[in-house]
Design a protein around this nucleic acid. Structure first.
Lengths: 192, 192
DNA sequence: CTGTTTTCTTATCCTACGTCAATTTTTTTG
DNA sequence: CAAAAAAATTGACGTAGGATAAGAAAACAG
């Protein structure tokens, strides 16, 4: 698999050749290694990232040092600290590569140019954000309403392809439990 | 306080008289009583609501019958099941009036007309949604990282005007704890 | 392939918060 | 204002999941 193009990124958008070239020119392809940090909390957030391959996550470190994962992104997902990306404020999240990855980064400025220059792109992004919004809402419901075991099962069902890319402690951090608890839950589920 | 106008709703947007009239025509003013339900889970979601006065909440009832509050809205806030409102899907939330209220409802269709007819309105709504997005993100962080007591303190600090409008059991439902626990927390905080 | 580091598991004990039940306080209503 | 209903508090007890510690299993490096 070599350089993907924006055709893949904007699946569903009907590009002319000119549109294609404009869109392509706004992205920068970056190869990132496991452990690389693309954003540190407290900074401003100039980019969002499209993941062509590999796995990234956003996480927050609390005052007490607890690591809380907000999002994972595998192939064909987007990732950033969107709250800060949109508002122009400082990030509270870090972005980390947790499996060697190829990402395409898009600056906020370039995104806004795309809105204007390429018809259909703005609504593409709008729909993407609406889905994000939905996933946040479901996450809140799941956090408030479910036991650790049910949150785990819900995660597996909602994102069946992610587990194989991530460490147990990343998943625990996403579910808001300890690795030990997650380990017990896996044990129980295997024996029931 | 009588009929407010869209000037109040769209504070910060610089209207011409014509814009004003267009905008005003899209809203319907509704008086709602404590206990009234404006939306039931499973329905489609044609409206979002601007609260002029009183208090509303959105909540979800889980499979096991647990009541989970997603949002409160007091004076000058907007409320809906936005996930469903945007995507056109069915709601998972209910919208309930918890203190006699005056609300202005805006249909999705009318909102889209406004985007086109009144310059500045689309970005007004975009900014509103970005803030919503941020509040969802902060909520997830708070749910995953904090103890019940700290979530309560964080809520009071973030939304100092809401507590006086709502019952304890509504707040407990928002924090994801029982009314008994909230009661104990209040007791502890009063004595420390 | 072997030693080292990282990750995962298992066991014991502990604590924050839930459950259940009774009582008091507040709000609503006729 | 009195009676009834709704909401909040308090106490006794139970439990899911956290903390700590130690060992097993994978992953990685030389």
């Amino acid at each position: 698999m070599n350089n993907c193009t924006v055709r893949e990124i904007f699946k569903g958008v009907d590009f002319s050749d000119a549109d294609f070239n404009i869109a392509q020119s706004k992205f920068e392809r970056i190869s990132v290694k496991k452990g690389d940090i693309l954003l540190i909390a407290g900074q401003s957030v100039p980019y969002q990232y499209y993941v062509e391959d590999g796995c990234m996550r956003t996480y927050h470190i609390t005052d007490t040092g607890k690591d809380v994962t907000i999002q994972f992104a595998i192939k064909d997902w987007w990732i950033s600290d969107y709250t800060a990306f949109f508002t122009g404020g400082k990030s509270v999240l870090n972005i980390e590569c947790i499996q060697d990855a190829i990402v395409y980064r898009l600056a906020k400025q370039s995104m806004e140019e795309l809105y204007v220059e390429v018809p259909g792109i703005e609504s593409f992004f709008r729909i993407k954000m609406e889905r994000f919004f939905g996933s946040f809402q479901r996450r809140i419901l799941s956090d408030l309403a479910l036991s650790a075991k049910d949150k785990y099962k819900t995660f597996l069902k909602a994102y069946p392809n992610i587990e194989k890319h991530i460490k147990n402690y990343h998943l625990a951090s996403y579910l808001g439990i300890t690795t030990e608890s997650l380990s017990r839950i896996r044990h129980e589920l295997a024996h029931e």
